[in-house]
């Protein structure tokens, strides 16, 4: 049973014991191996380990972000191609007499209005991609979703409540660019978490498994963190 009150002396003793605990050392080494490698600092990356300068509104003071994920950049290709078509559409369509029934000033406003729609389309897709993130901290997983610039949905689940983690990776693009979907079953209020089209799903699953081991270890030792 965990202690409710622990004296400073006892805490220091426990700290020493923990530091010398071989299982704890092993878990730390395992996490270190998973976390320290290829630590990219670019904040537009879609797989960011131990990111610096990143925060979220419900972050606790001592909570440490282990991994920040968003959809693989290649998933943006569809709307980028649509944007290119939209940009050149008025030029191509000017060869056909579609808007000829309109007076010149109306035609001009129609084109301006069209480019306004293109701007909104780009902005919406870009912001949705950039701000829809999945965060794995040392204590929980967080899924931040913004739908169509209007709805916000933030779901969290404690690491200790994770029951099962799996991933799928199929198809030419996904194999080629090494991204896939990670599925997490939890005993939390939201039973299923889906990290969709995230890079390196195998590493994400490995990290989650390592964190689950660490949480179990903490539970055995009666520690909170």
């Amino acid at each position: 049973m965990p202690d409710i009150f622990i004296s400073e002396e006892k805490m220091e003793e426990e700290k020493e014991v923990k530091e010398n605990n071989p299982i704890q050392k092993e878990v730390k080494e395992m996490l270190g191996k998973t976390l320290i490698k290829d630590n990219k600092k670019s904040l537009i990356a879609s797989f960011l380990r131990n990111p610096r300068g990143v925060g979220f509104e419900i972050k606790e003071k001592e909570e440490k972000i282990e991994l920040l994920l968003r959809m693989h950049p290649i998933t943006n290709i569809k709307w980028i191609l649509v944007t290119i078509i939209m940009i050149f559409a008025p030029i191509v369509l000017s060869k056909f007499p579609i808007l000829d029934f309109l007076p010149g000033n109306y035609r001009f406003i129609a084109i301006l209005g069209w480019y306004l729609i293109v701007t909104s389309f780009v902005l919406e897709n870009l912001l949705t991609w950039y701000f829809n993130v999945y965060i794995i901290t040392d204590e929980r997983i967080i899924d931040v979703d913004f739908y169509n610039l209007i709805y916000k949905d933030i779901s969290t689940a404690e690491i200790e409540r994770i029951q099962d983690v799996s991933y799928t990776m199929g198809g030419v693009f996904r194999t080629l660019f090494n991204y896939g979907d990670v599925f997490i079953q939890t005993a939390a209020e939201k039973p299923n978490f889906e990290f969709l089209a995230v890079p390196k799903p195998d590493k994400v699953v490995k990290l989650l498994q390592d964190l689950m081991i660490q949480e179990k270890q903490e539970a055995i030792e009666g520690r909170v963190r």
Binding site: G53, L127, F146
Partner: peptide
């Protein structure tokens, strides 16, 4: 609405490029 929503997004998440957004 977009300006308001971007403010909401940047208040929710601090990812490093809030000023650009």
């Amino acid at each position: 609405v977009v300006v308001r929503q971007v403010k909401l997004m940047t208040d929710t998440l601090q990812l490093g490029y809030e000023s650009i957004a």
